[in-house]
Design a binder for these strands. Structure first.
Lengths: 229, 229
DNA sequence: ACCTGAACACCGTTCAAGT
DNA sequence: ACCTGAACACCGTTCAAGT
């Protein structure tokens, strides 16, 4: 009643867990997960590093919280796309690719997901829905369980690649590779034949195509096992 | 000629790159990769941390060198098992499972492998042989390339699991999981039906079985694509 | 040629002290 | 209730100094 003057437009909302986590995600999106430190994160929200401990338990808690928010995003994206359930493969494919699109906006998330055991509600909900899908399609519990292991991180929309196009090999590596041409003729032949553009050393793999290729390979195989009872 | 007295049995061989890397592997095998620091590694070989820089370029170089030695082990194990090449699936399966047995003795190796681009000679040789196998079995270059992506880290004998049985969930996590039973009925049902032993929470997955299940799923699928030309 | 001690620029986290 | 400064116990790495 008294002092109506804009309590909504406070110059800066007070610090809380959510704001800390949002800032952590912003920082990781921008500079990579390796440059996410308590001191830098404190700077991002305008506070000393030690003050963060008033809102989160520690760095592990921050990483867990970041994942929780990202997978929350995934769950929303997945929930939005429930088409006709007549084709289980098409439906699951659609969901997994939707999850992938979210993760492509947060390149650090796969690394963090793989570095910890994921028992957060959001991740549990995602897998619970996935199991439900398999069951509805006629998969036995055993086969559903094997299917989840076979899909692995692909169930969440990502694969941890052994070779990363994004970071270019340094000069030493390039020189070594050229020297090795005679020792590894099959690799050289494959790169030569498969690479499309003029860039000869790396960046010649279409990650999205390869992801879908392997995903379809697995879904087709699983469907065959399902049909075989 | 002079002083025949045992120059072979020197009390301690002088430090060199190989001894540093062997010590690093020993330390990682024993205590995990996260406790491999320059100072501890120096202690392991009886020298201050700073002296290590006389033999290796830095920590990244040490990690690369460790991988090089481990994959060298894999190449030996794989080379030993060349049976009849009439069945490409059986041969490749045998090789990949041999690689897996080496990695199971060095549990830190998968993490390190995934954390860097692997252009070391040993890794190149491994993949060169794998490509050769695919080609000999009649795979096109394109399909070989897709096959390598589809196998991913499984080609080297490991998968990065999203859930790790080895580290037990803490009390908080267990409590939370029990609370969640009603929210995630499908997960609860799957765990209940699939778990064999009395241990209800975790450790109920047979990693080796799941690895072989997914490997066979992929190899069967690839064989079908090969036969379809 | 190899090793050392001190130092630098970072970490995550604890704690007593402020308001 | 929230924030701070100093401190602790660690990192990887550089550098001048020793032998």
């Amino acid at each position: 009643m008294a002092a109506e003057r804009a309590p909504r437009t406070k110059a800066r909302s007070p610090l809380n867990r959510e704001r800390v986590l949002r800032a952590a995600i912003r920082l990781a999106d921008k500079s990579g997960i390796e440059s996410l430190s308590m001191r830098k994160l404190g700077g991002e929200v305008g506070v000393e590093a030690m003050s963060l401990y008033n809102h989160v338990a520690g760095k592990e808690d921050i990483l867990d919280g970041m994942i929780e928010l990202i997978v929350g995003e995934i769950n929303e994206a997945v929930g939005a796309t429930d088409g006709p359930p007549d084709d289980w493969k098409a439906g699951m494919r659609q969901d997994i690719l939707a999850a992938r699109r979210v993760l492509l906006r947060h390149r650090w998330a796969p690394d963090v997901l793989e570095s910890r055991n994921n028992f957060s509600p959001a991740v549990m909900k995602y897998f619970d829905s996935l199991i439900e899908r398999f069951r509805a399609a006629g998969f036995s519990m055993d086969l559903t369980h094997h299917a989840l292991h076979a899909l692995g991180s692909r169930a969440l929309g990502f694969t941890q690649e052994l070779y990363d196009d994004s970071e270019q090999p340094d000069a030493d590596t390039v020189a070594m590779l050229q020297q090795m041409s005679t020792r590894f003729p099959n690799i050289v032949a494959m790169v030569a034949e498969v690479s499309h553009d003029t860039d000869t050393t790396l960046g010649w793999c279409d990650d999205q195509f390869e992801f879908e290729f392997a995903l379809d390979l697995l879904l087709d195989g699983l469907d065959r096992l399902r049909a075989a009872r």
